[in-house]
Structure formats: structure tokens, C-alpha cells
Nucleic acid binder design. Structure first.
Lengths: 244, 244
DNA sequence: ACAATAGACTTGTATAGACAATTAAAGCTA
DNA sequence: TAGCTTTAATTGTCTATACAAGTCTATTGT
């Protein structure tokens, strides 16, 4: 019996289908269920929870509509790939994107440090206790032209091996997506003038405007990472789509 | 009987709930049902279409999840407000936004012209026949500081009275949203340097970067408008949120 | 050995019915 | 009139059942 699945729920008075959705979402965001892993079938949930199939069906169908699960008739239900392109604002993996455009990607690690969170950074991360953080600065190239400076602060308690990654092989995005899959995020986009150092690193003139994306992502209630992505305006556009 | 509602459907082999969703969406996007108007209740659909209530319920529930309808227990189902903040990329009404920030909004109409679509613009609009178009340029102020230059090309066949609007009273956004509610849209965001004329109009220095948003919106299959929104980088940020 | 068939399991859709919860309006009472 | 109660309409949820359709495996037949 999996009735205990519905313990420690914030709101016990939710409808059954909502509780099931939440339980499944938690399993995924806590890493207990991996991407592409098969989840119990409708019949199994029915047996385990003692509820009607239509109730289970609704939960699974809605999670599918939300892109959290993928269902295949005759096969089963699976944890969905973490979609690289979220509904509107895409959460890019810059490397994949460049390769998809048919170009070559390369990146250089400029800074990688570990530290106790100081007051401001703890505020940013919304971490209550004094967890450790990592800070990295990486520059990404598209065919030898700089396309992004990525400055990132990472919650060490949710991504403990961040500093042991080989950032020339995998992007920080890839590690974070597998280790602490995001469930929520926030973007702030600005047009800014880069600093002299950044101009040099990006190989642009001091008057060239840059698109700066400040991104914060969560997994459940914990902030995973805060990133500042700086793109030369002449080489980068941000695309979004909405509607049906 | 409203069985004829399901005529002229692209795919007749759709499930019932999907056909109903499509029929309702069409009524809204074609302007037959206005915002906040009440739509038939589940019981009425059941009687009119001769289907089960759960089938109707699924259609209405999904449209509600998609933000197209709003439902109130005990009251009924209504056409939703066109959400000013779409899921991630917001489709701003700049005036509302400024007022919400507690500031004063004012706008000036710089250009308003009507023309037969030339080749390029017809291409942009995706209009096959030689429909007319309107072109407007408006500058928006937040407390007497310029915050946006809005250049817009409008499909005259879907917004015939665009040139008769008083743009000091209502934004073009408001007119378009009531006349031809968008169902789909696209954004392209860039960081650019403004032209000398634009610098003057925005009262900024020639080296100040600007955030330029190129937006295209559709209602059904027709492009309604193409807009170019230019914001001073020092006074404007774009915010987006995703996840659950 | 190979192909066709049958069966089991899965998701997808549709139906009929039940009760709960919310709201507005009508009706009743002091 | 003012306040309370009842009633009708509506949406929200849940159940039980049924059949269709896709996928894989095991069996059967040649």
C-alpha cells in the first residue's frame, strides 16, 4: 500500500488527483525518479491507492500536459526529459544551441571558487542556514567568437560536486539539470554596456550593447543557482513564443 | 442542436473534447464571444451536443488551464481576460504597467499612416492578398521620461478602425486586444544601439544600449500586428517566470 | 526457422451517475 | 423593510464501467 505517500503534505485537504500530482512531482524533483524512468501504470496506482482509474488518469494526464511526464499508449508513463526549451523563455544549454546551429562550441573556465555564503549571497540564494556556495565564471565560444560570459553562484547543498566537474567537457547547465532538476525559474533581461574587462573577453568594442540575462532557478523550495549571462548584442538574440 | 458546430473542422477524426475546445477557441478568436462574456454551462453543452458531461467538463477544464476561460463555481464559465502577463514572456500593455508601478503614463502619436501593403510588409504579415495595412509610431512616457518607442504595422483587414483610434486615450494594445484577440505570438529580443533620432526621442546618450523587442502576434491564422518596441536599457528590464 | 495470431498490458476516450461546494435569487418571517 | 432560509443552477470531484488503440511477448502453424 502506498497510502503513506500522501503524508507530510502541505495541504491535506487537496483533491486526490492534486495530491497524486504533487507526490509524483516531488519524487522527480528530489531525484528519486530519474529522467526516462518508467513510473507506475494507472492500474498500479489504482491498486496501491484504492482510487478510481479516472482520478489517476487525470493526475497523469495533467502532468503530461505540463511537460513533467511523457506517456506512450501501450508502453507506459515516463519521467519527461528536462525540456531545454521551456514554454516561452528558454532555459538554454548554450552548447547544445550552438551545435544545433551547426557551429562549434568551446568554453573556458575563468574562475571556480568555493566559499561560505556571505550575507548578500545567502540572501540571493534564499538559503537560510550557512550552506556553502560555489562561484564560477565561464566564457563560451561559437566558432572561436565569444558568445557568452556565464557567471554563476551555485547552492552547494544541492549540487555538492559542482567544483569537481570538467567544464570543458560538460556545461554547468548539464550538471545542474541532472543533479538538481529545476522546477521553477525567473529571468530578468536587460540591455547593458559591458565593463572594459568584459569587452576584452567578449572581443567587442566598449560601446557595443550586450544582452544580460539574470536567471534564478529553483528545485522545489530551494534555489539552485543564480546566473548572469552576458551576450554581445551583435551576435545574440533571445527568442520567445507563446500561445497555442 | 449545435451539432453543426463541428462542421468545417480541419481534422474531423479528433476526439469530441478536442473538437469542442477548438470550436470554443474559434468563437473567441473570431470575436463572436467577448471577454468576460458567459459561455454555455456544462449542462447546456450536454443538451446541445448530446455528449456526456465529463466530456464537456474536460474541454472546459483544459481551456481554463490554458488561460482561455475562467470558471467560477456556482456562477458559470466566462471568456478570460486576455492575460497581460502570459506564461513567460509578458505581452505588456505599457500603460497599465506604468500605472501599476504607481507612475503616470502619457503617450504621443508620432506617425499614423495607411497604405497598401507592399511586398516586404505583406511578407512580414503573412497576408496573401493585398490587404491594407496601418503603420504607427508612438512614444510612451513614464512620469515625463520616455520609456518606449513603439513602431507598429497592423493588418487592416482584422483591425479596420485602427486609424480612427485616439492613441492619447487608449494604447494600440488595448484596441487590438479587444478587436482581434491574439492567440499566438513571437518575441525576438535584442540589445541594440539606437539611431540618433531615437536617442533624441528617448532623451538618452548615443552610447546607451536599448532593449529592442520585435513582436509578432496572431489571431488564428492571421497575423494581426508586427511591433518593434525600443526601451532605454537604463530604465527598463524584461521579467519572465517559468515553472510551476 | 519464420510468420501469423492471440493474449496481456498499457494508455486514450467516452459514458452515466453521484455527491460536495459555491453562488445568486426567490421566498419567507419578524 | 431587513434579515434569514430555501431553492435552483453551476462547477468540482470521484467512481465504475466500457471499448478503442498501441505495444510487446508468447504461442501456434506452416
Amino acid at each position: 500500500m502506498l497510502a503513506h505517500l500522501f503524508d507530510d503534505m502541505p495541504d491535506a485537504s487537496q483533491p486526490i488527483y492534486a495530491k497524486l500530482k504533487q507526490a509524483i512531482t516531488q519524487k522527480i524533483s528530489h531525484g528519486q525518479w530519474q529522467v526516462n524512468q518508467r513510473v507506475p501504470s494507472e492500474a498500479e496506482w489504482v491498486k496501491a491507492l484504492g482510487v478510481s482509474r479516472m482520478t489517476v488518469n487525470r493526475a497523469l494526464r495533467e502532468l503530461t500536459a505540463e511537460g513533467i511526464l511523457v506517456r506512450h499508449q501501450g508502453l507506459g508513463t515516463f519521467v519527461a526529459e528536462k525540456k531545454a526549451h521551456s514554454a516561452l523563455f528558454e532555459v538554454h544549454n548554450i552548447a547544445e544551441e550552438i551545435i544545433a546551429r551547426g557551429h562549434q562550441h568551446r568554453s573556458e573556465l575563468l574562475v571556480l571558487e568555493s566559499a561560505k555564503a556571505n550575507v548578500e549571497e545567502a540572501m540571493m540564494l534564499g538559503v537560510r542556514t550557512n550552506h556553502g556556495i560555489f562561484r564560477s565564471v565561464v566564457i563560451h565560444y561559437e566558432d572561436d567568437l565569444p558568445i557568452q560570459i556565464e557567471e554563476r553562484i551555485v547552492n552547494a547543498s544541492r549540487a555538492p560536486d559542482y567544483d569537481k566537474q570538467d567544464f570543458s567537457k560538460h556545461t554547468s547547465y548539464e550538471y545542474l539539470m541532472t543533479t538538481a532538476p529545476m522546477t521553477e525559474g525567473e529571468h530578468l533581461v536587460e540591455a547593458v554596456l559591458p565593463t572594459p574587462t568584459e569587452c576584452e573577453r567578449l572581443q567587442i568594442s566598449p560601446t557595443e550593447p550586450c544582452l544580460q540575462i539574470n536567471r534564478r532557478t529553483w528545485a522545489g523550495d530551494d534555489i539552485i543557482t543564480v546566473a548572469r549571462l552576458l551576450h554581445p548584442g551583435s551576435r545574440f538574440q533571445l527568442f520567445g513564443h507563446f500561445g497555442r
